[in-house]
Amino acid sequence: MSIDKKAAGAVSDDLVTEGAFALYRAENAHRVSEFRKSDNADAAIAADFDAYRIRYLRKFRDFTESLSEQGLTVTRSA
């Protein structure tokens, strides 16, 4: 069975983006809780994350690289 590298890359990118979003939510819990009070909370949170997307993508990649140097990996649970 052959794995399509483009598809594998997309899955990896999705994992990084979702990891970056989780990191954003963890570091900005106070902002997220304020956004949750609005009528369109999910859109407000997504818009705020988009403003900081590059920063959190870089932070998450740095985090996963640090783990990798110690022989650990980040994977998606089933």
Results as ranks from 00 to 15, higher is better:
Met1Ala: 13
Ser2Trp: 12
Ser2Tyr: 15
Ser2Ala: 15
Ser2Gly: 09
Ile3Gly: 05
Asp4Phe: 13
Lys5Trp: 05
Lys5Asn: 07
Lys6Leu: 08
Lys6Asp: 14
Lys6Phe: 08
Lys6Ser: 08
Ala7Asn: 08
Gly9Trp: 07
Ala10Leu: 13
Ala10Cys: 07
Ala10Glu: 14
Ala10Phe: 11
Val11Thr: 00
Ser12Trp: 11
Asp13Val: 07
Asp13Trp: 08
Asp14Ser: 15
Asp14Val: 09
Leu15Ile: 14
Val16Ser: 02
Val16Pro: 01
Thr17Met: 12
Glu18His: 08
Gly19His: 02
Gly19Ala: 04
Gly19Lys: 02
Ala20Lys: 01
Ala20Ser: 05
Ala20Ile: 05
Ala20Gly: 08
Ala20Met: 03
Phe21Leu: 13
Ala22Glu: 11
Leu23Arg: 12
Leu23Cys: 11
Tyr24Arg: 05
Tyr24Glu: 07
Arg25His: 06
Arg25Trp: 03
Ala26Val: 00
Glu27Lys: 11
Glu27Leu: 10
Glu27Phe: 05
Glu27Gly: 13
Glu27Cys: 06
Asn28Tyr: 04
Asn28Val: 07
Asn28Leu: 04
Asn28His: 11
His30Met: 05
His30Ala: 13
His30Asp: 15
Val32Tyr: 02
Ser33Ala: 14
Phe35Gln: 02
Arg36Thr: 09
Lys37Thr: 10
Lys37Trp: 07
Ser38Ala: 08
Asp39Cys: 04
Asn40Pro: 03
Asn40Phe: 09
Asn40Arg: 12
Ala41Trp: 01
Ala41Ser: 01
Asp42Asn: 10
Ala43Gln: 10
Ile45Ala: 06
Ile45Trp: 04
Ile45Pro: 06
Ala46Phe: 05
Ala46Lys: 04
Ala47Glu: 02
Ala47Tyr: 00
Asp48Asn: 15
Phe49Trp: 00
Phe49Glu: 01
Asp50Ile: 04
Asp50His: 06
Ala51Lys: 14
Ala51Asn: 11
Ala51Val: 10
Tyr52Phe: 10
Tyr52Val: 06
Arg53Thr: 01
Arg53Glu: 02
Ile54Ala: 15
Ile54Phe: 10
Ile54Ser: 14
Ile54Gln: 10
Arg55Ala: 14
Arg55Asn: 10
Tyr56Arg: 05
Tyr56Leu: 06
Leu57Val: 15
Arg58Val: 15
Arg58Cys: 11
Phe60Arg: 09
Arg61Leu: 07
Asp62Arg: 07
Phe63Glu: 03
Phe63Cys: 03
Thr64Asn: 06
Glu65Ile: 07
Glu65Met: 08
Ser66Val: 06
Leu67Lys: 02
Leu67Cys: 00
Glu69Phe: 00
Glu69Ser: 02
Glu69Thr: 03
Gln70Asp: 12
Gln70Arg: 09
Gly71Thr: 01
Gly71Ala: 00
Gly71Asn: 00
Leu72Gly: 03
Leu72Trp: 03
Thr73Trp: 10
Val74Tyr: 00
Thr75Glu: 15
Arg76Ala: 00
Arg76Lys: 00
Ser77Thr: 13
Ala78Phe: 09
